[in-house]
Amino acid sequence: SQTQRTQDENEARRIAEEWKRRGYDVEVRNRNGHWEVTWD
């Protein structure tokens, strides 16, 4: 799996939607004030 971090929730949601469209299983988490998008 791969993880991308961002400070911006909207960006995190956009990234998550992009990977979901490509057929990946995606998880979005808030950790210590930043957002992590993990896909595999």
Rank of each mutant, 00 (worst) to 15 (best):
S1T: 12
S1L: 13
S1R: 13
S1A: 13
Q2S: 10
Q2H: 14
Q2Y: 12
Q2R: 14
Q2T: 12
Q2E: 07
T3N: 06
T3W: 13
T3G: 07
T3A: 08
T3M: 12
T3I: 12
T3S: 10
T3V: 13
Q4I: 15
Q4K: 11
Q4D: 05
Q4T: 13
Q4N: 06
Q4R: 12
R5V: 14
R5A: 09
R5E: 08
R5M: 12
T6G: 05
T6V: 14
T6H: 07
T6L: 11
T6R: 04
T6K: 03
Q7T: 12
Q7D: 13
Q7S: 12
Q7Y: 11
Q7C: 14
Q7M: 11
Q7P: 10
Q7L: 12
D8I: 04
D8G: 06
D8Y: 07
D8F: 08
D8Q: 05
D8T: 12
D8K: 04
E9K: 05
E9R: 04
E9D: 03
N10R: 11
N10Q: 13
N10I: 10
N10K: 11
N10W: 13
N10G: 11
E11S: 07
E11V: 07
E11D: 07
E11W: 07
A12P: 00
A12W: 03
A12D: 00
A12M: 04
R13Q: 08
R13M: 10
R13S: 04
R13I: 09
R13G: 03
R13A: 05
R13K: 09
R13T: 05
R14Q: 10
R14K: 10
R14M: 09
R14N: 06
R14I: 08
R14E: 07
R14Y: 06
R14C: 09
I15H: 02
I15S: 02
I15N: 01
I15F: 05
I15L: 11
I15D: 01
I15W: 14
I15T: 04
A16Y: 08
E17T: 06
E17Y: 07
E17D: 11
E17N: 08
E17G: 05
E17W: 08
E18P: 00
E18H: 12
E18W: 15
E18R: 08
W19S: 01
W19K: 06
W19T: 01
W19N: 01
W19Y: 13
W19Q: 03
W19P: 00
K20G: 06
K20M: 11
K20N: 07
K20I: 11
K20V: 09
K20S: 09
K20D: 03
K20Y: 09
R21D: 07
R21E: 08
R21N: 11
R21P: 00
R21Q: 11
R22M: 10
R22T: 02
R22Y: 05
G23R: 01
G23P: 00
G23K: 01
G23W: 02
G23T: 01
Y24G: 03
Y24V: 04
Y24K: 03
Y24H: 05
Y24W: 08
D25V: 13
D25H: 15
D25N: 15
D25K: 14
D25R: 14
D25P: 06
D25Y: 14
D25W: 14
V26D: 00
V26P: 03
V26F: 02
V26M: 02
E27M: 11
E27G: 05
E27R: 10
E27S: 12
E27I: 14
E27A: 11
E27C: 14
V28F: 04
V28I: 13
V28P: 01
V28H: 01
V28T: 03
V28E: 00
V28R: 00
V28N: 00
V28D: 01
V28Y: 04
V28W: 03
R29M: 10
R29G: 05
R29I: 14
R29D: 04
R29Q: 10
R29V: 14
R29L: 11
R29F: 12
N30H: 14
N30P: 07
N30A: 09
N30L: 14
N30Q: 14
R31S: 10
R31A: 10
R31F: 13
R31C: 14
R31M: 14
R31L: 13
R31G: 05
N32K: 05
N32M: 07
N32G: 12
N32D: 13
N32F: 09
G33H: 03
G33R: 02
G33L: 03
G33W: 02
G33D: 07
G33F: 03
G33P: 01
G33Y: 03
G33E: 04
G33T: 07
H34I: 15
H34Q: 13
H34W: 15
H34S: 10
H34N: 09
W35H: 01
W35E: 00
W35K: 00
W35D: 00
E36T: 08
E36W: 10
E36I: 11
E36D: 04
E36M: 06
E36V: 10
E36Y: 13
E36P: 00
V37R: 01
V37H: 00
V37G: 00
V37D: 00
V37P: 00
V37L: 05
V37M: 02
V37N: 00
V37Y: 02
T38S: 11
T38N: 06
T38R: 10
T38G: 03
T38P: 01
T38I: 13
T38L: 09
T38Q: 08
T38H: 10
W39H: 06
W39F: 08
W39L: 07
W39S: 04
D40S: 15
D40H: 15
D40K: 15
D40R: 15
D40E: 13
D40L: 14
